[in-house]
């Protein structure tokens, strides 16, 4: 194993205060499972994670020169990850093969994802495999109504783990799952009542893009979630009168021109990235046989990948936007105008 050139998988664990993130890690990372896992936490929990390599992350925020506040890079996280990698390469710590980052309950995930995706040093050594959000079944409704951070955590995640399900009723859990699906139709929703081995698998299993998830969202239809008055604009926590989260589906029959699409999408994220919580799309590009997968969280776009094959006979591009205070029809009209103006068929 060449320590210097390894790219280490990272699991990001978020969840509101008291949702049970530390307890989950303590249950899962015991014995041999903890041996090759490094855990970074930016809060002190009551639960001891004795067997783990612990790193405390202080509060310090550095502004990325190409981003707004929600792309601000967490400098202390970067330093902690870079330091951990150096220690591993020098042999000062055991050669861990994966990293878990546990955020504070009040953290919005976007700056952390930005650090992992955008920082040159960090992305050379670490790769974000999955974002997991722990949701407290008992307090989810109250947290959703009052804290925009809760919504940011749900909308940015790949996998939702419902905790404290044993303290409430099955119909309540079903209703909670339904509302979580409306906010983030792409996330896999699981309950925490599995065995430690199953939980461990859920903690480390990479998020997989399911192409049919984009299409099924479109078939079910766009939804609107109305929040309580406390719902604010997510990344900045500024009071925002229209606090509706809407998921909208855009279908484009003709193949996309990649250059035109990137110009339009970068311009859209530059101006409206703070209102665009999540975008997932399956793109049919001109000259390509296979579909490309677009995945964005606020201003951040994950590296664009392509799938081996189309999920069905349809060859249309499908984009799902989860937005706050931004209408999908307006976004679609903007794209079509953009294509027409640049003399490319939409």
């Amino acid at each position: 194993m060449s320590l210097a050139y390894d790219i280490i998988p990272v699991t990001l664990v978020t969840g509101f205060l008291g949702s049970g993130k530390s307890t989950l890690l303590a249950d899962v990372l015991t014995g041999d499972a903890a041996r090759d896992t490094a855990v970074l936490v930016n809060e002190f929990g009551e639960v001891g994670l004795d067997h783990l390599l612990m790193g405390e992350v202080d509060t310090q925020t550095v502004l990325l020169d190409n981003g707004c506040v929600c792309c601000s890079i967490r400098g202390e996280l970067k330093d902690a990850l870079a330091g951990l990698f150096s220690k591993r390469a020098r042999g000062d710590v055991p050669p861990f093969s994966r990293v878990v980052i546990e955020t504070t309950g009040l953290a919005t995930p976007a700056p952390i994802i930005a650090t992992l995706l955008a920082d040159l040093v960090i992305r050379s050594h670490y790769e974000l495999k999955v974002t997991i959000t722990v949701v407290d079944a008992l307090n989810a409704d109250a947290q959703r109504a009052r804290y925009p951070e809760w919504l940011a955590q749900i909308s940015a995640t790949d996998r939702i783990m419902i905790s404290k399900g044993d303290l409430t009723t099955a119909p309540h859990i079903d209703a909670l799952k339904q509302s979580l699906r409306t906010i983030n139709p792409f996330a896999e929703i699981v309950e925490r009542n599995s065995s430690p081995d199953a939980l461990r698998e859920l903690l480390f299993k990479p998020a997989r893009f399911a192409p049919d998830s984009v299409q099924s969202v479109c078939e079910i239809g766009a939804g609107t979630v109305r929040l309580g008055k406390g719902g604010g604009r997510l990344a900045h926590r500024v009071d925002f009168e229209r606090s509706d989260i809407v998921s909208s589906c855009i279908r484009i029959e003709d193949p996309l021109d990649w250059q035109v699409f990137t110009l339009w999408f970068t311009m859209l994220l530059n101006r409206h990235g703070d209102k665009i919580l999540r975008v997932k799309g399956l793109l049919a590009l001109e000259g390509a046989d296979r579909p490309a997968v677009l995945h964005a969280v606020q201003h951040l776009v994950h590296p664009v990948l392509h799938l081996e094959e189309w999920p069905d006979a349809s060859r249309a591009s499908t984009l799902v936007f989860i937005t706050e205070g931004l209408d999908g029809a307006v976004i679609e009209a903007s794209y079509r105008r953009f294509c027409a103006a640049l003399k490319v068929a939409a």
Binding site: M267, L268, R271, H272, S334, R337, F338
Partner: peptide, 27 residues
């Protein structure tokens, strides 16, 4: 990159470049 292009262009122009309203007048 293009994320930067639009940001700097907005600064040079002294106004926002909004794709939601761009080309609306032409249409």
């Amino acid at each position: 990159d293009f994320a930067q292009v639009w940001k700097v262009a907005e600064r040079m122009l002294g106004r926002a470049l909004d794709p939601l309203t761009l080309f609306q007048v032409d249409e």
